[in-house]
Design a protein around this nucleic acid. Sequence first.
DNA 1: GACACTTATGACCACCCGGTCATACTAGGA
DNA 2: TCCTAGTATGACCGGGTGGTCATAAGTGTC
Lengths: 215, 215
Amino acid sequence: MGINTFENLDNDKQERVLDAAVEEFAEYGFHQASVNRMVKRLGIAKGSVFTYFGSKQGLFEYVFRHSVSLIKGPLKAARQAEGDTFDRIRLSLVTGMDFVRRHPRLYRIYLKVLFQENVPFRETFLRQVREYAARFLTPLLNDGIRRGELRGDLDLDMAIFLIDGLFDRFLQAWSVPAVHPGLHGLKERDLEQRINQLMEFIRRSLAALPGEPHA
Amino acid sequence: MGINTFENLDNDKQERVLDAAVEEFAEYGFHQASVNRMVKRLGIAKGSVFTYFGSKQGLFEYVFRHSVSLIKGPLKAARQAEGDTFDRIRLSLVTGMDFVRRHPRLYRIYLKVLFQENVPFRETFLRQVREYAARFLTPLLNDGIRRGELRGDLDLDMAIFLIDGLFDRFLQAWSVPAVHPGLHGLKERDLEQRINQLMEFIRRSLAALPGEPHA
DNA sequence: GACACTTATGACCACCCGGTCATACTAGGA
DNA sequence: TCCTAGTATGACCGGGTGGTCATAAGTGTC
């Protein structure tokens, strides 16, 4: 019994179960999600889910861990990229958008958890997301300052707040209706243009001006 | 029966009921909120709630309307304020913070509704919030461009996205733990400093540079 | 085929939900 | 005092929930 039982299943069934769970949580969040409904769609008995994961929360935890493992790869790739500081900042946005495009349901779960208190692992969830962002951006910004591309008097924490906040909001507006209608669901060319405008804001906020003193 | 019954109640009881409803929705959001629990704390019979509001959704609608009416005053005052374009932008942030400080539970409800689909009035709710922001910022930014304080080539919609997004995120980080720990719960002096840094970002993003052409 | 062991099943449980409604209470006019 | 209209009440309803567990169905070994 327990998680071993689940991981001994043939991969196809594992994937089907995971997929159904992601679907259910993405659609309804944690509390409104129904194990009954999920197993009905899935075509297996309810008892199995509890054999595998012990509880609804255990199932959610599994989905959570799986999601975290999915973002690690692209993030590492993005971290190792070369180039201008602003190119690299831009790349982190594009990486995020790729993830959202590839795993829209995981992103919906993240958004539902964001302000929904009483959700298990919420604190852990958010702390991890934030740590990833900070661990990615801190050295990048430090590099930028050292190279003189960024203002020397920059407050690192506030710069992270700026980038992180704007990017997160941009993703939200892009993928959720009614956050900022002008950005929702934009495709290639328009999207590219908006990203450029957004990056221009960030460049102006962070870049060292020619006349300003080097750090 | 109906809403008339409720509005014929003496003010004290009306307030106690409204307060309990706000408390419940702020703590649990719409779906997890429990009428049973609410009336137990309130010390009235469950039937009364349904006499007043017809349904849980009717109660929520009442809270919603009440909230909207509360924000209107300060917003109008802020809109009529005079001064430098950036002072006025800053004032809109401070106005928002005042509201959140005064009505933290209403803000919590707003946040819970933000990404929680399947909530009644969600679209209406968000559309109204956005329209308020746009109606406030559009003329302000147009003024700023005309006066030459803002870049002439500014894309209005993206400028609104920038300000709106950063301010909303700032409020979130300030009032919700784990969004951006460095900003959560800051008091007077530190808060002031962070607001200044935030406004500096916005100024750099939007302000016309001395060398740049006037619109 | 008999055995042990793991996995699958769904009827069942206690609990809570939003909502109803027959009944009891209350206040004011005749 | 009696009547009436408005209001308050909480037992009750159908339905859905997460979770359990006795039983059945596979699966591999000898």
